[in-house]
Simulated scan of single mutants.
Amino acid sequence: MPADAKSPPGFAEAPHYHGHRERLRERFRDAGPDALSDYELLEMVLFRALPRRDVKPLAKSLIGRFGSFAEVVHAPDARLREISGLGEAAIIEIKLIAASASRVAKGQLKQRTMLSSWAAVIDYCRTSMAFADKEQFRILFLDKRNQLIADELQQVGTVDHTPVYPREVVKRALELSATAIIMVHNHPTTPSLITLDHAQAR
């Protein structure tokens, strides 16, 4: 329809962003998620929460503020609420992505009969805790074949401190008959940094 033509009576002209949304969906379907930039993937997350808005500027603003798609979905709720135009419905959609990623990573780790490499453990830990806003201390309990028995969150601390009680760690290892443990804690001030310590239970 020409730019100066009027819509037929009873029909409202579709917002300009409707075509953009459909093109994004087609590109995602045909070329896969790697064909989309971080802000475009974030746009698709926001579609359902904000069906009547052009979410492209908001998605770009979020990436500009936090740095990447991963950092946006793992950002604390309080910081997300600071973003103009981002309501509770949109925040829930964003946190749903973080929860889904964590659940998938945990499921994949539990399905493995053996933790065969440090890289696999590090990838899992980064997914589940790298962007937490408080320091966490987690323990992976292993049997003598390095099979995962349990992954447990032991303590949650402040931004830069979490208490650890060796007696409780040893007690839990004995309860689970673990022969080795991997102790993990994050560094909220440096989201990409995860510290691992390995110990043999006797």
Rank of each mutant, 00 (worst) to 15 (best):
Pro2Ser: 15
Asp4Gln: 13
Asp4Trp: 15
Ala5Cys: 12
Gly10Val: 15
Glu13Tyr: 07
His18Ile: 14
Gly19Cys: 05
His20Lys: 15
His20Phe: 09
Arg21Gly: 03
Arg25Pro: 04
Arg27Tyr: 07
Phe28Thr: 12
Phe28Cys: 08
Phe28Met: 08
Arg29Phe: 12
Asp30Cys: 01
Gly32Val: 06
Asp34Gly: 12
Leu36His: 13
Leu36Val: 10
Leu36Pro: 14
Ser37His: 09
Asp38Cys: 14
Glu40Pro: 01
Leu41Trp: 09
Glu43Ile: 02
Glu43Pro: 03
Met44Ala: 03
Met44Ile: 03
Val45Ala: 01
Leu46Lys: 02
Phe47Gln: 02
Phe47Val: 05
Arg48Tyr: 10
Pro51Ala: 04
Arg52Val: 11
Val55Ala: 13
Val55Trp: 03
Ala59Gln: 04
Ser61Arg: 09
Leu62Cys: 05
Leu62Gly: 04
Ile63Glu: 15
Arg65Leu: 05
Gly67Asp: 08
Gly67Glu: 08
Ser68Glu: 11
Ala70Pro: 03
Glu71His: 11
Val72Met: 05
Val73Gly: 00
His74Ala: 02
Ala75Ile: 02
Pro76Ser: 01
Ala78Phe: 08
Arg79Ala: 15
Arg79Met: 15
Leu80Gln: 09
Ile83Glu: 15
Ile83Asp: 12
Gly85Ala: 13
Leu86Gln: 06
Leu86Met: 07
Gly87Asn: 12
Glu88Phe: 11
Ala89Ile: 15
Ala90Leu: 11
Ile92Val: 11
Glu93Arg: 13
Lys95Cys: 07
Leu96Gln: 14
Ile97Gln: 13
Ala98Thr: 08
Ala98Arg: 15
Ala98Lys: 15
Ala99Met: 14
Ser102Met: 04
Arg103Ala: 11
Arg103Gly: 06
Arg103Glu: 13
Arg103Pro: 03
Val104Gln: 06
Gly107His: 12
Gln108Leu: 14
Leu109Glu: 03
Lys110Phe: 08
Arg112Glu: 12
Arg112Val: 10
Thr113Glu: 11
Ala119Tyr: 08
Ile122Ser: 02
Ile122Asn: 04
Ile122Arg: 06
Cys125His: 00
Cys125Arg: 00
Met129Glu: 02
Ala132Cys: 13
Asp133Cys: 03
Lys134His: 09
Lys134Cys: 04
Lys134Val: 01
Glu135Asn: 06
Glu135Trp: 01
Gln136His: 10
Phe137Arg: 00
Phe141Tyr: 13
Leu142Gly: 02
Gln147Phe: 06
Leu148Gln: 14
Ile149Ser: 03
Ile149His: 03
Ile149Lys: 05
Ala150Cys: 10
Leu153Ile: 06
Gly157Leu: 04
Val159Ser: 00
Asp160Asn: 07
His161Asp: 02
Thr162Val: 10
Arg167Glu: 11
Arg167Tyr: 04
Glu168Thr: 06
Lys171Leu: 09
Arg172Lys: 13
Ala173Pro: 01
Leu176Met: 08
Ala178Gly: 05
Ala178His: 08
Ala178Thr: 07
Thr179Pro: 02
Ala180Trp: 05
Met183Ile: 01
Val184Phe: 00
Asn186Val: 07
Asn186Cys: 12
His187Leu: 07
Thr189Met: 06
Thr189Cys: 01
Ser192Trp: 04
Leu193Pro: 07
Thr195Glu: 03
Leu196Ala: 05
Ala201Ile: 07
Ala201Asn: 09
